[in-house]
Design a binder for these strands. Structure first.
Lengths: 338, 338
DNA sequence: AACGCTCTTGCAAACGTTTGCACCCCAAAA
DNA sequence: TTTTGGGGTGCAAACGTTTGCAAGAGCGTT
């Protein structure tokens, strides 16, 4: 009804007392008499008073908003992370400002500026694929804003990090393939400069070495989408010495492989085994259902948010922490039982 | 480096001029001399000045943040919507504050309070399944905050709305089933009090009537998850007079039906046809790929955000608008060709 | 010499809070 | 009666901006 939102001054005028008294009364300050407190709080309720967070944050030089930079929103892993972040934040009384970098450095730059303008208390960030300079993140730190990286972390900047255990996840997945009888395991990966590509590749390689299998460069491909997998896979299967298993960097790619293999006339998992890296529900829609590595994005988000809020509240003293979230191999129908 | 972020006053002191001059110089005010403007802007760059949005918004009584209430984040349709919103908002210079209601009325109440505290310029909301009172949304309006509902709209409140054309989508889907020879079409739906259930059911019913097929209550079920579908479907197939097609309220449910039908020993689409309502990539991972109704969440988000921002900017005069986003039938492998 | 004009700059108030300090009043102690 | 003291309240400054208004400088016109 009110053309403008009710303020402390409105209440003060209504009750013929000073704004400072109202302010104190609203928070049950011991200096204020019971009578006044009751009066003020009743009036506040009646006029539907809601404190102005803008004024409050300005005055107190703090902010109850945290910024989140995410490369993509429509993406199972990232949206799980956002959900984890939102949950922790809202429990701790923080609001979440969401930004999508769209895998672009330019956008990321704009976003970090917006975050500084908004004077957020902290930032949770995952690098875009394009990003290879980090001054804008240093600027965030220089502006006294807490910063925690998650998943696509930044090594160039001194700060806290939360990552998925890509190495161990890949190691376990490939070992599972080997233990169920696979000998020539192809690896479909994202561009090699990304940390996750490197780490998962190392897991893949170490699994091979551990089980004394030859490492074969001709079985390693850059291929990380469903469409690319459907195009590449028939060619790979037609090679002289084709693989008997595929390990893919994500489930989208794995579903592409699965479809291509079936179209090629081979049986999964009898002829060919397939293992993905989790993108969510997709794995259960496949036939057979996809063996994959669960990444626990929700945990990543929760952990990162907790870390950040602790830093904001000054709970954590001193050094930077690296948190690693464990992965879990979900064995389903695209790999054989022992 | 600076313990605190640089302000206009810092620049003023540095240059021995007044803050007002700095403020004007930064925005190329014609009153200020070229020399001063250059001086100020150089100094601002050097000290890495970023305007304090808090102070600005307080002073100007405006806000460049919009709030988004979403029932779930990890959900293809809703995350598409959020992506659409984020895109439009960031193009128009608005920040997005994201809240998840978790399908809970209590949470929704807390969120609307937070939004009022934060003095956001506008709110985009989709009702939680639980919500059946709307005072908290009326309060948003009373506080002079623009409000637009999307998808799960609220009829009780006088405001703008953006919805998917559920009725037409369902109608077209069921007609497609009928035209490809199906005569007994089962309908798996969400709880019946939801608008989307009602609208899609009406589409389903009208398709049957239009083609002179009998309406059969025993073919309509409340079932809207993959697991529920896998449990219910075998029973339905074992009925005396089983259906020859299934129309499901979402793709998760459809994938459950598909799996159950195959396990039952029937062929899709030869014996049984299946049509879903789109949850995204899921449809492409199925075998055969799922025929489904594309909902264009991204469009919903973009449209709703545009509508809201127009209202905030006072572009739209007067009446409330209802925008309807068209659906599109994606014919794939779980239905027959004519 | 007085006036009026333009160009540039600064003062001060305002947005809605919080909070250190001062103040008043009344009762109890001296 | 005068001090002391404490409970209750208000003043004013501060957070970082913007902006209406005033004012000074410089210069040309009467």
């Amino acid at each position: 009804m009110a053309k403008t939102q009710t303020t402390i001054v409105d209440i003060a005028k209504e009750l013929n007392i000073s704004p400072s008294t109202v302010s104190r009364a609203l928070k049950n300050h011991p200096d204020i008499s019971k009578k006044t407190i009751e009066l003020v709080q009743a009036c506040a309720k009646r006029l539907n008073y809601q404190p102005n967070a803008l004024a409050l944050n300005l005055r107190l030089g703090r902010n109850n908003t945290i910024g989140v930079i995410v490369p993509e929103i429509v993406h199972y892993f990232f949206s799980s992370i956002v959900q984890g972040i939102e949950e922790v934040a809202s429990n701790e009384g923080f609001n979440v400002m969401l930004f999508r970098s769209e895998e672009s450095y330019e956008k990321e730059l704009k976003i970090t500026n917006s975050l500084i303008n908004a004077r957020v208390a902290g930032v949770l960030a995952s690098l875009s694929k394009e990003t290879d300079r980090y001054e804008h993140y240093q600027q965030i730190i220089d502006n006294n804003i807490q910063l925690v990286f998650y998943d696509r972390i930044c090594i160039g900047i001194n700060t806290d990090r939360v990552v998925v255990d890509d190495y161990a996840g890949a190691l376990k997945a490939v070992e599972h393939l080997i233990e169920t009888g696979c000998k020539r395991i192809a690896f479909y990966s994202s561009p090699t400069h990304l940390e996750i590509s490197k780490n998962r590749k190392n897991g893949y390689l170490d699994a091979l070495r551990k089980h004394k299998l030859p490492v074969n460069e001709s079985l390693m491909f850059v291929c990380d989408t469903r469409d690319a997998a459907m195009e590449l896979t028939p060619k790979v299967l037609a090679m002289d010495n084709p693989p008997d298993a595929f390990f893919a960097i994500n489930d989208h790619t794995a579903t592409g492989i699965l479809r291509a293999v079936k179209q090629f006339g081979l049986k999964v998992p009898d002829d060919i085994s397939i293992c993905g890296f989790s993108d969510g529900d997709l794995a259960l829609a496949c036939d057979p259902m996809l063996t994959t590595v669960e990444q626990h994005g929700y945990e990543v988000g929760k952990t990162a948010a907790k870390l950040l809020i602790d830093k904001i509240n000054g709970v954590t003293l001193g050094q930077f922490t690296n948190r690693i979230i464990k992965t879990k191999l979900m064995v389903r129908g695209t790999t054989r039982v022992i």
